[in-house]
Design a protein around this nucleic acid. Structure first.
Lengths: 332, 332
DNA sequence: TATCGTTGTGCAAACGATTACACAAACGAT
DNA sequence: ATCGTTTGTGTAATCGTTTGCACAACGATA
């Protein structure tokens, strides 16, 4: 209520005002500590009056616990990541944990950024980016066991992680497309050097192999609509494929647009197009994408579960695997 | 390099290892402080060897500057906000400022969350949500002058802010639609109680008034695709409008889909549909939306400029206004 | 009434940095 | 050789909490 008071009042000052010691102030704000309930009520009243709140920085220094969580991500603007991050941020906040977002395109900047965040003594680190090697993560956050949310093969078995298995779902999708008469498949990758992308491709390649088929063409984009569009144009000009599996939903939408607009081919009759992620947009009427979809809420529940186990002192490593399921749309 | 060492080494310990005092350690890490360059080099070498980095929490406590920035947003998942946040996060990180995201749907939770963040002594607060009253922001962050990025009329003149003016752009868009022969307009609001939404509506209403026209119908959604779709269906069933101005791009896409799918009306001949924001998706071939667009990069540049002035000690208040310009698509 | 928990509070030492002040050494100028 | 200045380093206080320890007051028990 102090309006535009510049400086924040400290526990020592509040102690003087309430006629107690600063230790007692502290106890008034700690749920289970020996303090008379009358004293606590009085202190809380005075605190409210003067707008006092314990300084979390000082508290963190003393406690050795900051209640900060670093989230290392590739991009916020990408819908899939944005949807997941939104879910995770809500779950963290409900637990009084504050998320610090580390978002960086460039590799060396990213490491710098991770080092910076590690100096803030974050309690947890969640790494969504497979652009970060596990070893770097462990080195930089050596006091905080990170949680890796990605698909890199674990060369370091001491790190908690959450993985996704889309083999079965990819199989279902390929079965249907083959049943629909398509035989000539292309894979439109999200990135050239990503483990996630290689793994996702393998799910589909294995499914194709069971039909005695293989990818006839490949292209690489960057998970963006524009790259999906552009690479699809090139791809469809140079090879006569009738089915394109894309690295994510946004690229699939780009590829669908390219096929329709530039090549005059419509889904699913002329060409089948498949996305991956299962973002909300995939279900919009204008897209209605067939996609290998992940339950993002369950995914983030898993992340939080690992965090809670770490908080409880059980540092694992914990490993959770979630399955992807097809979302059937009109593009394949 | 210490691998999986549990505890982090402190400056005092490093001091012992390097044969200096902890004050000297501190000086080695402060760019312009009196220290022999030989000593500094030696300390930095030893520090690297033992993986020492100054503890930012302790540093913040002493400095009274945390280099944390609170970002209060409505949603991360919404593409417009996600795109802006991405740009802002990059700009902050380039200045060694770490963003803490506060994202909350519920109002009382949001205030709680802001109070929590304020205990972390954030250096700056950027409020993107017009669901937060300016007075609440000022009360909660009374030691940190917040920056309001929204459109609420400023009853408190002491707050820096960035505003958007779309009056001219809305005029251009309305002029064109009227020139195309449309006369019956509807406004599909983003939210019922939002200042931003009222202001945006006014830009278009004023432009219509100059043609002697007014909105014939109104509906309220929640900025989501689904609400755009659903409200458009209801709206177009109960009134024969031939142009719909939407609160944002995502709703416009929903309305366009509804018109096409449910009513069988196509843009722009049967009906004109206009969005607002100018998100990347508006430019995708499948959407190609006519929209009142904002230069998000310039917008975030403005935010950062105000932050830099605050950092330089000039707390203003500063006020920057940016104009919106039309993006011409095939929907209107 | 003497004794023994229990309860509530204060004192003071952490937590890990930064920085004003003091001081010694080194240096240049006279 | 002496003085003044600059340079580099250490000492100790500080930032705002939390918490182990000590202790007084209190009611319950024997």
């Amino acid at each position: 209520m102090s309006g535009t008071n510049r400086r924040r009042i400290t526990s020592k000052e509040l102690a003087k005002l309430a006629g107690v010691s600063s230790a007692t102030i502290s106890r008034a704000f700690s749920p289970d500590s020996r303090i008379g309930s009358a004293t606590r009520d009085r202190i809380l009243a005075v605190a409210r009056e003067y707008g006092y709140q314990p300084n979390a920085i000082a508290r963190s220094l003393n406690n050795q616990r900051s209640r900060l969580v670093a989230l290392v991500v590739n991009a916020i603007g990408n819908p899939c990541e944005a949807e997941e991050q939104q879910l995770l941020v809500h779950r963290l906040q409900a637990r009084q944990l504050l998320p610090i977002i580390l978002c960086c395109a460039d590799h060396s900047d990213r490491l710098q950024l991770m080092r910076l965040a590690s100096t803030y003594q974050v309690d947890h680190v969640v790494i969504f980016s497979d652009m970060v090697s596990m070893q770097d993560a462990v080195d930089i956050f050596h006091t905080t066991k990170p949680i890796i949310v990605s698909f890199e093969p674990l060369e370091n078995e001491d790190v908690s992680n959450i993985r996704i298995d889309g083999a079965a779902g990819a199989g279902e999708i390929i079965d249907k497309i083959v049943a629909d008469g398509k035989r000539r498949f292309a894979y439109l990758s999200g990135t050239k050097s990503s483990w996630i992308d290689k793994l996702r491709r393998k799910w589909f390649a294995d499914a194709l192999a069971r039909h005695g088929l293989a990818f006839e063409a490949e292209a690489f984009g960057d998970y963006s609509y524009d790259s999906g569009f552009k690479e699809a144009v090139l791809l469809l000009h140079r090879s006569k494929v009738d089915a394109v599996i894309c690295g994510n939903d946004v690229m699939a939408i780009g590829a669908r647009d390219a096929a329709r607009r530039v090549l005059g081919k419509n889904t699913p009759n002329d060409i089948a197009i498949v996305g991956q992620d299962g973002i909300a947009m995939a279900g919009w009427d204008c897209n209605d994408l067939t996609t290998l979809s992940l339950d993002h809420a369950a995914f983030m529940d898993a992340v939080v579960e690992v965090i809670e186990r770490h908080e409880a002192g059980d540092e694992g490593p914990h490993s959770i695997t979630l399955a992807c399921t097809p979302r059937w749309g009109s593009t394949a």
